[in-house]
Amino acid sequence: MKDAEPMAAEEPFRHREKLLEKQKYFQHIHKHTYLKGPFDKITSVAIPLAFAVASGALIARGIYNMSHGVGKKE
């Protein structure tokens, strides 16, 4: 049998220095895990808060319309 040839090493996705820099950033920050990135406040706080406010307004409008008999479809 032939000896297996060693596989060529793949290029990494990121340079090692960049990776170590990112690791140091995420390991030394003192925030919650889901708020560590620069845009995480938008996706983890602002968007769910906007959905909650919008749904609360629609629920309040529905309760008002039902209690006053307004907005019926004929």
Rank of each mutant, 00 (worst) to 15 (best):
M1D: 10
M1L: 04
M1G: 07
K2A: 13
K2E: 14
K2T: 02
D3L: 04
A4H: 00
E5L: 13
P6A: 06
M7W: 07
M7T: 07
M7K: 14
M7R: 09
A8W: 08
A8C: 05
A8L: 15
A8F: 04
A8S: 08
A9D: 14
E10K: 06
E10W: 03
E10S: 14
E11L: 06
P12S: 11
R14W: 04
H15A: 08
R16T: 09
R16I: 07
E17N: 01
K18T: 07
L19D: 15
L20S: 04
E21F: 10
E21S: 06
K22Q: 08
K22P: 01
Q23Y: 05
K24Y: 12
K24T: 08
Y25L: 12
Y25S: 08
F26K: 01
Q27S: 05
H28D: 13
H28N: 12
H28W: 02
I29L: 12
I29E: 02
I29M: 08
K31F: 04
H32S: 09
H32T: 03
T33Q: 11
T33Y: 11
T33G: 02
T33S: 03
Y34H: 09
L35D: 05
L35K: 04
L35W: 03
K36E: 10
K36A: 11
G37I: 01
G37T: 15
G37Y: 04
G37C: 11
G37F: 05
P38E: 05
P38R: 08
P38F: 10
F39H: 12
D40G: 04
I42M: 14
T43W: 08
T43Q: 00
S44W: 11
S44N: 12
V45D: 05
V45T: 09
V45H: 14
A46F: 14
I47V: 15
P48M: 03
L49T: 15
L49M: 11
A50N: 00
A50G: 07
A50Y: 14
A50E: 01
A50L: 15
A50F: 14
F51V: 14
F51T: 15
F51K: 02
F51C: 10
A52P: 00
A52C: 13
V53D: 00
A54S: 11
A54E: 14
S55V: 03
G56V: 01
G56L: 03
G56H: 02
A57P: 01
A57E: 14
L58S: 04
L58Q: 07
I59D: 01
I59C: 06
I59W: 02
I59M: 05
R61W: 11
G62E: 06
G62D: 04
I63L: 05
I63Y: 02
Y64K: 08
N65I: 10
N65P: 03
M66V: 03
G69D: 08
V70K: 15
G71C: 13
G71E: 06
K72W: 10
K72H: 12
K73R: 07
K73P: 00
K73G: 01
E74K: 15
E74C: 07
E74W: 02
E74S: 11
